[in-house]
Design a protein around this nucleic acid. Structure first.
Length: 577
RNA sequence: GGGGACGUGGUGCAGCCUGGUUAGCAUGCCGGUCUGUCACACCGGUGGUCGCGAGUUCGAGCCUCGUCGUCCCCGCCA
């Protein structure tokens, strides 16, 4: 076998006249008749190989086709000045082939490995071919570097990387678990962890005061472009710290990752209250790359003159101002009015032209030009209704419109902390409150004392990291006493008996000296996605699943044999669901 | 659980609204010409159960219903 002594990124002018051996895949062939050019590709780069006629190598090269695996021995030489390719890293040299060995032939591939196009289902079926694509290779290489830098950084701060089990106990709160039947104890099941939450808290209790893990998490919920059923977190936990300490550590880590992997300085990560984010951006993950903040007109004197847009009992009137643009049409804006109606909101819009307004509520606003602060050719959108609905509606519109009119700067990263999330949220389906983050989160004790009757008003020491409108991760200060933990369980309707059964070991652990602790988890898949500029996690995961949770290459989930089921004591109700 | 888009040679797409001759284009693949190409060019050729099933019709890639799959979104995701 012709075994390489150089990889393709190592080939440059310094090797001119040297004999080298390379290995790689045939990227494309250009057969000019008397002369054949072949691009050979490996993980590191591409180099052009030249076959001259009437040589043994030439005869073999005539058979080459895309994705053949080859070994080539040849002489590095400078390309003629007028035949250099500036688009290719090795574009001023080429290899004059002396020997070639075909190490593996290839059928005509079902997808192009050298173009970023094609339908995703075929690509997923032949994922090992799709992974030859340059963009996917560089995304995975980027991901590798990010994880390496994470380990390096956290290690330098004396964090210990400790593995926790994948086979654990199903927990009733939170996301649906994937479950795994036990063979040895028939009729019982393990669950795959939604996160290593309980383990890392136990590690704190055990005295490993700085823990981290590149941890796989599993959640059996419906999927989206930004959600895979299994995903990876940089999971960390610290003892004897408060929220600020964790945020400083995580913020510095993220800053370091942007700097060292992407070469970008993102500066310090600012903080914002959850309430403020909802008020100004109508979202708990605001995209700060552009303005278009909401303005609350409810208490402005002129709000009462707004006719049907005036706030009625308990309602709020809010406005966003769309900067001057010629993209947003009357049709688009009217569509928002319609859409608002179906959410029980009232919406009006108008364009300002120096002295007067035009649009659905142009006449209404014409007497209020000095009250509505708006510039030449800007569009105002006013929306009225229930506080929460108005905010989220305009929040979504804000992002949609910004995308549509193209005011979001690319290659820019705006990170921020969102602090003080509500501790509880109402679950309409179960008719009860549940923990918004998770039930191990430390509530604001002052709220617990002063507002014991309205759980929705109790804040939590929990915080999200948001970058460019994406939730990158979340964390909290944890409860570390049995009393408080039991109290929170009770508030969300977990009976004492159930708490004992599900979390008895955990509650007991609090009785043996649990240190105050807090932590965080960063979604690696999302962080890499944002950094490399893709919107689908499938572009940063080697072997991802589809929106319906299947792996098209392995064709799984799939049936198992009767014997396997029998061994587990499982009988299927029917064959198909 | 719900909504939307899509499914046509190996691959990417057009054709569907307004049903009717041989399903068109690009690329790939095969063959030919070509010694400086770099998405090589040019010439010729190959390749299609129009996702699957039913219905309407004299006739369905096209219309209707169902079903499967992919993508996007809502619910859901502590």
């Amino acid at each position: 076998m012709l075994k390489r002594n150089y990889r393709l990124h190592e080939l440059n002018e310094s090797l001119i006249d040297k004999t080298v051996i390379i290995n790689g895949w045939v990227d494309r062939v250009r057969n000019l008749g008397g002369i054949i050019f072949v691009w050979v590709r490996d993980r590191y780069g591409i180099v052009q190989v030249l076959f001259e006629p009437e040589t043994p190598a030439y005869e073999i090269a005539k058979k080459l086709s895309g994705e053949y695996v080859v070994g080539i021995e040849g002489i590095v030489r400078e390309r003629p000045k007028d035949a250099q390719n500036v688009d290719l890293a090795s574009g001023n040299i080429e290899i004059l082939a002396k020997k070639i060995e075909i190490l593996a032939e290839s059928k005509t591939p079902p997808i192009y490995t050298n173009r970023d196009e094609g339908s995703e289902d075929v690509r997923l079926k032949y994922r090992y071919l799709d992974l030859r694509r340059r963009t996917l290779q560089s995304n995975l290489i980027f991901r590798h570097k990010l994880v390496q830098k994470t380990r390096e950084y956290l290690d330098s701060l004396d964090f210990l990387e400790i593995e926790t089990p994948y086979l654990m106990k199903s927990t009733p709160e939170g996301a649906r678990n994937f479950i795994v039947p036990s063979r040895i104890k028939r009729g019982t099941f393990y669950a795959l962890p939604q996160s290593p939450q309980i383990f890392k808290q136990l590690l704190m209790i055990a005295g490993f005061d700085r823990y981290y893990q590149i941890a796989r998490c599993f959640r059996d919920e419906d999927l989206r472009a930004d959600r895979q059923p299994e995903f990876t977190q940089i999971d960390l936990e610290m003892s004897f710290v408060d929220q600020e300490d964790v945020q400083e550590t995580v913020g510095n880590l993220v800053k370091y990752l942007f700097k060292s992997v992407l070469g970008k300085d993102i500066g310090d990560v600012p903080s914002m209250q959850y309430q403020t984010a909802m008020e100004l951006y109508g979202s708990d993950k605001p995209d700060l790359r552009f303005e278009m903040k909401m303005e609350n007109l409810t208490s402005k004197p002129f709000a009462s003159k707004l006719d049907f847009l005036s706030p009625r009992d308990g309602e709020e009137t809010k406005m966003i101002v769309v900067p001057k643009n010629d993209v947003l049409s009357r049709k688009d804006l009217d569509a928002y009015s319609e859409s608002a109606k179906s959410s029980n909101l009232r919406l009006g819009w108008a364009k300002f032209h120096g002295t007067n307004f035009t649009g659905s509520v142009g006449k209404l606003l014409s007497g209020l030009t000095s009250d509505v602060k708006v510039g030449e050719d800007e569009t105002v959108i006013l929306c009225v209704g229930k506080k929460h609905e108005v905010s989220t509606f305009l929040g979504k519109a804000r992002v949609e419109i910004a995308n549509k009119i193209g005011i979001i700067p690319q290659n820019t990263f705006k990170a921020l902390w969102i602090n003080d999330f509500p501790m509880f949220e109402w679950n309409e389906e179960d008719k009860r409150f549940q923990a918004q983050h998770h039930p191990f989160t430390m509530p604001y004790l002052e709220d617990l004392e002063s507002k014991p009757d309205d759980l929705s008003k109790i804040r939590a020491h929990s915080y999200d990291l948001v970058i460019n409108g994406w939730e990158m991760g979340s964390g909290s200060v944890r409860i570390h006493t049995r009393e408080l933990q039991e109290r929170v369980f009770k508030l969300i309707g977990i009976t004492e008996e159930e708490a004992k059964k599900r979390f008895g070991f955990f509650l007991e652990a609090f009785e043996y000296g649990a240190p105050p602790h807090a932590g965080f988890a960063i979604g690696v898949d999302r962080l890499v996605s944002v950094m490399v500029g893709v919107t689908s996690l499938r572009d940063v995961v080697a072997f991802p699943k589809t929106a319906s949770g299947t792996d098209l290459m392995m064709d799984t989930p799939s049936e198992v044999s009767e014997d396997q089921l029998k061994e587990l004591g499982i009988k299927l109700e029917d064959h198909r669901s």
